[in-house]
């Protein structure tokens, strides 16, 4: 148990410190790297409570794909210099009320959830499923995801699809005058389309069409 506790405190300490560093570090790219560290230590915590499937999926989706795209965007936009201007500018203070409201809402939500869990445990346990603890949690998720929660699961897939189509529509523009490579016409080209054999009479030359 002791080793377990030590590892728990190490990972949670790294998670909290890196979460703080995400918001305080001056360089935006550093913020993203701290975010990645945060994701990794949280997935370690998931693995420690025995939810190895969730932990791995968290690594694959958030660290392997989402954070790469974050990093991609942050590096391309070069936000590092802009952020310093935001901090020094006077009008930045008008963002503060909005931020305060959002953080208060999140804080109270956390109080409600954690308080309910602490003082009225039957509230939470009435929602949970009776899962056979002898099967691995990959199987356990599989048994409920496609049976009891199929509609919610499909709905969340639909929302992602709509978001994806929206992003494509927003950035898609048809430019005129762009030459595209058509693989089909390239491959289906015959010898007779491209090459012509001409007998050139001597001292006459030949007149080309173009």
């Amino acid at each position: 148990m002791l080793a377990h506790a030590i590892f728990f405190y190490i990972f949670s300490l790294i998670a909290i410190v890196s979460a703080i560093m995400v918001t305080v570090s001056k360089n935006t790219v550093h913020s993203v790297f701290f975010l990645i560290l945060d994701f990794i230590s949280i997935s370690c915590l998931f693995i420690m409570i025995g939810a190895e499937f969730l932990g791995m999926i968290m690594l694959i989706i958030y660290v392997g794909a989402v954070a790469v795209l974050f990093l991609f965007v942050v590096m391309m936009l070069n936000v590092a210099q802009q952020k310093n201007q935001w901090f020094s500018a006077r009008e930045s203070s008008k963002h503060i009320p909005v931020g305060l409201i959002i953080s208060t809402i999140i804080f109270f939500e956390l109080i409600i959830v954690i308080g309910g869990w602490k003082y009225k445990p039957d509230l939470v346990s009435s929602m949970s499923l009776n899962i056979d603890s002898s099967i691995s949690n990959t199987h356990a998720i599989g048994y409920v995801l496609y049976t009891d929660y199929i509609h919610i699961f499909q709905l969340s897939g639909m929302i992602l699809l709509v978001a994806m189509i929206g992003a494509i529509v927003l950035t898609f523009r048809q430019r005129s005058g762009v030459k595209r490579q058509s693989y089909f016409s390239q491959i289906s080209r015959e010898r007779s389309d491209g090459v012509e054999l001409i007998d050139v009479p001597s001292n006459k030359g030949v007149k080309s069409d173009d």
Partner: peptide, 23 residues
């Protein structure tokens, strides 16, 4: 239990070495 997911996750992290070095 999740050996293949672990392999896949670690190989998808491999991109960070390259991005960090390049940036």
């Amino acid at each position: 239990n999740v050996g293949i997911l672990y392999l896949f996750a670690v190989s998808s992290l491999g991109v960070y070495g390259i991005i960090m070095g390049g940036w």
